[in-house]
Write a protein that binds this DNA or RNA. Structure first.
Length: 645
DNA sequence: GCCGTTTTCGGCCCGACTGTTTTCAGTCG
């Protein structure tokens, strides 16, 4: 996940039980895993905590109910030990002995984990032998040559630590999906066109369309006799900031901005996002963007196995291996092998005994499964679905016929109503929803009630002109109405009543971030229950790489929306498609669908160019298992008139 | 710490690369 969670036990609620929320518990279990790593605990014990944390984040039910009904151990990955821990924490607000880990492990050790090439074992060694407990003291020790001479530490290892610290400063955190795709696809194209490369494809989290990307993975099919030739071509690419390593099957490089000089990044950033990222931090990021890339070179006949392997996710791969083992097969990046056929052969040497696979779909077919689209490979149920022919038919970006949440010069956009409408028509859209900011948001020039009426008249005139000339296009007049901290909406009910749709959004983040999850959830539900409320805009307010959203029980919010829809109302949840947000998170999409909540993919465009961001929203919708019928902006413009007018 | 139709112990996915060694430990994906 994005952002840096605090490294202390969360404060128990005053009015418990339950003393902790589900997200509190998920976070603590995850952090216990990390703390145990730094303590040098049994790696399998560590993984248990990680698995338990992961299982809980997939749990849709209320954790407090599950705890009280004694059903915790029914959750896969939670046994007697961790169930007891959770139960005590929720009902008594105590974390027992394990909570002591937080005092035992200095927080500086946790920060050191972020240094590339440095893991828990080395950090533990430095701490125990030299008392190093922060990145700063590690840097000093390295520069003084104190690290070499320790167990298995030489001059090169010491330099690697110092390099890692530099790298961390320059390359902190993850890249957004749009940046990853920009670099990744450019690199894929260049490598695919190199002499000796038969085929090249972007893999990794970029191919899976994760909202943020750690590094780039490219798989290239190269005959063994061409490996050296191709390696040399890669190493002489323009804009390589550094070479991290180069072996017979893998080249690891760091790309700098020069790689990218011919393609300029046209970011569509609204003022609030810039503010969230912080002026200096943003400048630094924009001017010094680098990205790690690993290129795997494999013989053509193993290409599909390597592509599948490095597309991941790790969790998906583990399940795939288990599935293979159940059939007496071993699956790795070189092939799919009958266990009795390969004996002691390993790696590439075994490849000739593999079952054949030209495409990835052949691998899945050998295991009795349908091909799983890369976006779904997260072990979120896709394995079971692929085995039972239950995979969804994912929506396609081309099916979008408009979007509901866009800004004009009336508030903080850069294009007029007419310009935005024209841009939408040139995209082939049948409708455009306008939702400028509401009056309370002065920093974004929110509209007064009077201005809102004027805007309505302007839209009415435009709609009539299209209708008169037989053009299948209309503007829906909405507003991005602020949800105030107590859950009331900006403007009075009468003013909101003139609108076709109300996009309710939270903008006063500091207030919401200070509050408990249950208070926020209640306020949001109050807002949604207002009869004029239509679409929940960027549900958590997160900025990727900038800030986490506020705490909220989205399952409860979506459940309530579903109930209201069942009563005949229309409550929609937005996937804010700005690559800076991608909020609703994909992990909640399927739940929204199951609860009967339609999804709107909204670019939150502040310019004509920004409308195209719907593409990123569509990627997230796909990742969230959504089909065309789940997306309300895949409906015809004329049908939407019936719903909104 | 979790798990189990080879179940209460002995497993827990697998391999490449680097730097340190002279057979391996740590890190990464």
């Amino acid at each position: 996940m994005v952002g840096v969670a605090s490294w202390s036990l969360p404060r128990p609620r005053r009015n418990g039980p339950p003393y902790y929320s589900k997200s509190n518990v998920i976070q603590v279990l995850e952090q216990i895993g990390v703390l145990l790593e730094l303590k040098g605990a049994n790696p399998f014990r560590i993984r248990s905590y990680q698995n338990a944390s992961r299982s809980l984040s997939n749990l849709e039910e209320d954790l407090w109910i599950v705890t009280n009904e004694g059903r915790l151990t029914e959750i896969k990955g939670i046994g007697k030990g961790i169930a007891g821990l959770i139960s005590e924490a929720m009902s008594e607000g105590k974390w027992g002995e394990i909570g002591g880990l937080y005092d035992e492990i200095p927080s500086g050790l946790i920060e050191m984990l972020a240094i590339p090439g440095l893991g828990p074992k080395k950090i533990k060694l430095f701490y125990e032998e030299l008392g190093i407990d922060s990145i700063a003291s590690l840097k000093v020790a390295g520069e003084d040559g104190m690290l070499q001479g320790l167990d298995r530490m030489g001059a090169k290892s010491e330099q690697k630590v110092l390099d890692g610290i530099e790298l961390l400063k320059r390359f902190s955190g993850k890249r957004r999906l749009d940046v990853g795709l920009l670099y990744g696809e450019a690199l894929e194209t260049r490598i695919a066109s190199m002499t000796g490369v038969q085929r090249a494809q972007l893999a990794g989290s970029t191919r899976r369309r994760k909202e943020t990307i750690g590094d780039l993975d490219i798989v290239a099919a190269v005959k063994p006799e061409d490996v050296e030739l191709v390696t040399n071509q890669i190493l002489s690419l323009p804009g390589i900031a550094d070479i991290k390593g180069s072996g017979s099957s893998k080249v690891s490089i760091i790309l700098g901005t020069e790689f990218f000089d011919e393609i300029s990044e046209e970011g569509q950033v609204d003022g609030g996002v810039l503010e969230a990222l912080g002026g200096d931090a943003w400048e630094e990021l924009a001017s010094s963007t680098t990205i790690d890339a690993q290129i795997r070179l494999v013989p053509p006949h193993v290409f599909s196995f390597t592509l599948a392997y490095f597309t991941g996710s790790k969790e998906h791969n583990v399940r795939m291996r288990q599935r293979a083992l159940d059939q007496g097969l071993r699956l790795n990046e070189f092939g799919l092998f009958p266990l009795d056929a390969i004996g002691d052969l390993k790696g590439l040497e075994a490849a000739e005994f593999s079952l054949p696979a030209i495409e990835e779909s052949d691998i899945y077919a050998h295991l009795g499964m349908a091909w799983v689209p890369p976006e779904l490979r997260e072990d979120y149920g896709e394995i079971e679905a692929a085995l039972n022919d239950k995979l969804p038919t994912l929506m396609e970006p081309i099916q979008l016929k408009g979007a509901f949440h866009n800004h004009t010069t009336a508030s903080d956009g850069t294009a007029s109503l007419e310009q935005m409408a024209q841009a939408a028509q040139s995209l082939g859209w049948e409708f455009l929803g306008i939702a400028d900011h509401s009056q309370i948001l002065q920093v974004a020039s929110g509209l007064s009630a009077e201005e809102l009426h004027q805007q309505k008249d302007a839209i009415k005139a435009l709609n009539e002109s299209w209708s008169d000339s037989g053009v299948d296009f209309r503007i829906f007049h909405g507003n991005e109405c602020d949800i105030l901290p107590d859950g009331t909406l900006d403007y009075d009910a009468e003013t909101r009543g003139i609108l076709d749709h109300v996009v309710g959004s939270v903008h006063q983040l500091p207030t919401w971030k200070k509050r408990d999850e249950d208070v926020n959830t209640e306020a949001l539900i109050t807002a949604i229950e207002d009869p004029t409320f239509t679409i929940l805009g960027h549900p958590t307010g997160r900025i990727l790489g900038g800030r986490d959203g506020f705490d909220i029980d989205l399952h409860a919010v979506l459940r309530r929306m579903g109930e209201l829809n069942a009563e005949g109302e229309l409550k929609i949840v937005e996937i804010n498609a700005s690559p800076y947000r991608l909020d609703l998170d994909w992990r909640f999409c399927r739940y929204a669908k199951e609860q009967g909540v339609p999804i709107a993919i909204n670019p939150d465009a502040h310019s004509t160019q920004g409308l195209k961001d719907v593409w990123f929203g569509a990627q997230i919708a796909r990742k969230g298992w959504l089909e065309t019928t789940d997306i309300i902006n895949c409906r015809k413009g004329s049908d939407l008139e019936q719903l909104l007018w």
